[in-house]
């Protein structure tokens, strides 16, 4: 969808430009789940607004909205408070539907449907003070989903949430994705990444990695190359978690080979496998 797009920020005097996005080329397919990672201020949010169809000033390059259509795609942001305009989830969805100009007769049904999709039907008429931060985010999802957008942009929606609310929000986003909505999931938390999902890493306004999440943590091994791959995660400036750091060291020591473990199940299996191998050696 993006082809060599740059966004340049001009300072007060109108010169010495600082670049927010630099020559970014990116394609997003309908119904795809795309993770975007990077440190604060790397240009993730600029990219999010761009992909939503909110065009900033000083944009160069070409952009085609493709499957997402010509309108604006809904964005959900970190802070639930800044994006809720009603007093209850149902009011929120109705507010969104009214502004979309949906005919009066359909609004009640569509609102029920949107609330059901995010699992908030039972809490539809509760005021915000009785909902957790995660549930408030789900209400913002519901308002965004009310008109069946083809693309939903979620900009660090879990960063202000505790663990259980984070799982709730992430799980709901995944179920919306299963129903066919393309999701742009912007995050700083690497434990939200699934090994085979696609991730784009941004550093200083440039895309420095576009591939699966395992490759992002551990680097992509090149066949026939003896030198070990470097971790795009480290290159992007993010902190490598304990287990990933340990796996990379084990590979450096020559004990492990790619693919390195990433999920809980894979780590369990690695421990089990080593055990089995040892057991076999002991037997023979």
């Amino acid at each position: 969808m993006l082809d060599h797009v740059s966004v340049i920020d001009l300072d007060e005097m109108g010169n010495s430009p600082s670049v927010r996005l630099h020559e970014v080329s990116l394609a997003l397919a309908a119904g795809e789940w795309l993770n975007v990672v990077g440190v604060n201020g790397c240009g993730k949010s600029t990219l999010a607004r761009l992909l939503a169809g909110l065009l900033p000033a000083n944009l160069s390059g070409e952009m085609r909205r493709g499957f997402a259509g010509n309108g604006v795609s809904p964005i959900v942001l970190q802070q639930p408070k800044a994006q809720l305009f009603g007093e209850t989830p149902r009011e929120e969805v109705i507010f969104a539907l009214e502004w979309k100009g949906i005919v009066k007769e359909r609004i009640a049904d569509l609102a029920e449907d949107a609330l059901n999709k995010v699992g908030l039907l039972a809490l539809a008429d509760e005021p915000w003070t009785r909902l957790s931060g995660g549930q408030q985010q789900l209400a913002a999802f519901a308002a965004s989903m009310a008109c069946d957008p083809l693309l939903l942009i979620l900009d660090e929606v879990t960063s202000m949430l505790d663990e259980s609310n984070r799982e709730l929000v992430l799980g709901t986003a995944r179920s919306l994705h299963k129903r066919g909505t393309a999701i742009l999931w912007i995050t700083q938390r690497l434990d939200e990444l699934e090994p085979d999902a696609r991730v784009v890493a941004i550093e200083g306004g440039r895309v420095i990695y576009d591939g699966d999440c395992r490759g992002f943590l551990y680097g992509v091994p090149v066949p026939g190359e003896t030198e070990l791959p470097s971790s795009p995660c480290l290159r992007s400036g993010l902190r490598l978690p304990y287990l990933a750091s340990m796996a990379i060291e084990l590979r450096r020591l020559g004990k492990w080979k790619d693919p390195l473990p990433m999920t809980t199940q894979e780590w369990g299996k690695v421990l089990g496998d080593v055990g089995d191998a040892e057991a076999k050696i002991a037997k023979s």
Partner: peptide
């Protein structure tokens, strides 16, 4: 958030 949800774009919103 308002702009991305299309609030204010439609000159004649519905009153349900």
């Amino acid at each position: 958030a308002l702009e991305s949800r299309g609030v204010g774009v439609n000159p004649h919103p519905t009153r349900s």
